[in-house]
Every structure is written in C-alpha cells, then in structure tokens.
C-alpha cells in the first residue's frame, strides 16, 4: 500500500542574517559568519493511511518545525513532502486542504472577533465545498462531531473553556475534510481530565473518518497511549523510529531509553530518579558526530567524530546509534 505521506530528506535551516555592523566589518577583513540553526536535518519517514504516528522529543528538537512543514505552513530548505490523496476526492482542490493542523494554544489559534459559525465555515465556503446557505446546518453538524452543542454556533471563542475551544479548533480542521491531521502539542495546554476527553475524541474521529494523524508531543505518556508508531527526535534528527510495541519493550537508542526512564508513571509509585546528565545542547552549535554523545553514558571516540545512520534492527524499528554496529559486526 502506498503511504499517504512520504517525507524524504527534509531539512529546514533558519538563518540569522548579518546585521549592518557585521557586514561592514566583513568588508574590512573580519570574518563574521551568519548563524544557522538546522532545525530539521535530513529527516525521512512515511506514514500509512489511518496510522497515528507520534513524534516525541524535547524542546528544540525540531518536532514542531517538522509538523509545520508537513502541514505546508513552512517551506522546507531542501527535501520534499509528498502527499498521496485519495483518488475519489476532488483533485482540483489545493493539496493544502488535505492536511490540517491543530495547534497547542486554543486561546490564540481562534480569531476572537469571529463567531464560531464563521470560524468553522470560512474555509469550506471559500473553497466552494459548501454553499453559503448550507452554512448553518454544516456548522451544526461539525460541532456535533466534536461533541459540542449546536446552539453555541453564534457565540464567540471567549465564551468557551479551554477544552471546548480546542474542540472548535478540531471542528475547523475537520470542516475541509482533510485526510491528515497534524496535532502540534494539541493537548498540552489542557487540564488532565480535559486532556482525556480530547484524546478520546481524536481516537473516535480517526475511526469514524479514517483520518491519519501526525501527533507531536513532548508528553511520552500521551504518545504511548495514542500512537501506532513513534518517531523520536533529538536536535533536528530522527534518532529512533519504531512500532509502539518495540518502542516500549525494546527501546534501542540511549536517548530513547533515557526519555522512557524519565517519564513519571502512576503505576511505578514512589521511586528514585536517576536522570541523564547534561543539558540539551544549543541547536546553534550542536555537538559533532552523534548529537547525543555529550550526554550519552556509552559514548566512544567514534560517536564524537561520525554521525550514526538509521539502521533497521527489526521490522520497522530503526535506530541511529553506533553501538548497534558493535553488537552485530
């Protein structure tokens, strides 16, 4: 089966241009370089239809930049995002409609001066998916899908709680019948009991409308719960990708292991934390070789020199670590 989304060798650099003084100094012989952040560095993966792929990583690992490129909000520096839409859908619609994004902050992602009905129907009316006179029933149906009352249509966003606003954001995304939803920390700003409601909603919607999700989160507990496959990122690169079962049972990369060990868990109870040492390095000046080597307890000289490549360990389970070479020469 052809994957719905194929990301190949995708990279995104953010460059800070030189200011005037640095340019002048360069004229007189100084050598000031532009600062470049490799937010996403040569990332490739594929997503099957109906799959929920979780992307985890800590701040600055490029997971949000990756999500934005997939959703078409940012244009990549190099590489490509290919999308394979279902043939039955009208092919003259822009590809961007097939991918919708759900944002983290339900307060800033909705226009405060628009009524709910207009927030939901603006895009489908613009693209001619529905007629203007269908507006009312269409919006009501969308609201019902996400578990909101249809008599709230005429309200403004500020009249809703955080969880309800996130539901409106989801209804807005669903309004153009997308096939892929990119959820960027979509539940991070919500309370625990509301989080559970929204997670259940995501799962229900996938079953109802055969949606595919790219679920970006720093919360490993949530990723474990919802994903079929997990991608672990560290400083712009994929360090490990695995089906959920092998991610949980046989994590391979030292970073993945550290992440999993650091997750507070209800079922474990009181315990001692044994954290990995060191901080996340600045993406402006990432370590050479394997980005994780300054924090890795198993780092060798080779890790400083040479960046490891992703290697398949078992079906669908890839990890980028030199230790795997030594284990099986």
């Amino acid at each position: 089966m052809k994957p719905i989304l194929t990301v190949s060798n995708l990279s995104k650099d953010f460059t800070k241009p030189l200011d005037l003084i640095a340019k002048l100094l360069n004229k007189v012989g100084q050598d000031n370089k532009e600062e470049v952040v490799h937010a996403v560095d040569d990332v490739s993966f594929a997503v099957q239809r109906g799959e929920i792929v979780g992307i985890v990583g800590e701040s600055g690992c490029g997971k949000s930049t990756l999500g934005r490129m997939v959703a078409g909000i940012l244009s990549p520096t190099s590489g490509s995002v290919e999308f394979d839409a279902e043939q039955t859908k009208a092919s003259d619609l822009p590809q961007a409609l097939q991918t919708q994004m759900i944002f983290q902050d339900p307060f800033s992602s909705l226009n405060p001066r628009k009524r709910v009905i207009d927030i939901i129907t603006e895009a489908p009316i613009f693209h001619g998916l529905i007629a203007r006179k269908q507006k009312n029933e269409f919006a009501a149906e969308m609201l019902q899908r996400v578990g909101l009352d249809s008599d709230t249509l005429q309200r403004y966003p500020h009249q809703f709680s955080g969880g309800q606003r996130q539901r409106i954001g989801i209804a807005r995304a669903l309004a153009v019948s997308p096939e892929l939803l990119v959820c960027d920390e979509s539940i991070a700003a919500l309370d625990v009991s509301i989080q559970a409601q929204i997670i259940n909603l995501f799962v229900r919607l996938r079953d109802e409308f055969t949606l595919t999700y790219l679920f970006i989160s720093h919360d490993i507990g949530v990723i474990e719960h919802i994903s079929d496959r997990v991608i672990v990122m560290y400083l712009g690169r994929i360090v490990e990708t695995a089906p959920i079962s092998s991610f949980l049972q046989t994590p391979n990369h030292p970073y993945t292991k550290a992440l999993l060990a650091g997750v507070p868990r209800l079922e474990v109870g009181k315990r001692e934390y044994e954290p990995v040492s060191g901080e996340i390095p600045s993406p402006l000046d990432p370590p050479t070789g394997c980005h994780f080597h300054p924090r890795c307890p198993f780092a060798s000289e080779r890790c400083q020199r040479e960046a490891p490549l992703l290697r398949e360990l078992s079906a669908g389970h890839f990890s980028a670590c030199h230790l795997n070479d030594e284990a099986q020469p």
């Binding site: 709680s161 969880g163 309800q164 309370d191 625990v192 009991s193 509301i194 989080q195 559970a196 409601q197 997670i199 259940n200 799962v203 229900r204 507990g221 949530v222 474990e224 719960h225 919802i226 959920i244 949980l248 868990r265 209800l266 079922e267």
Partner: peptide
C-alpha cells in the same frame, strides 16, 4: 476519574476513562 484520565502503558489502546463536563 483523574487517575483514569492519565494515559498508562497497561491500558494502551483502550479509551481513557474521561470525566465528562468541566470544573
């Protein structure tokens, strides 16, 4: 309800026991 809302490895794949409504 709060405990049921926290995703846990043991209950993967099942819906979370959500608390309906809000504070």
């Amino acid at each position: 309800g709060l405990m049921g809302s926290v995703p846990s490895q043991n209950r993967r794949g099942q819906p979370l026991q959500q608390i309906d409504g809000m504070v």
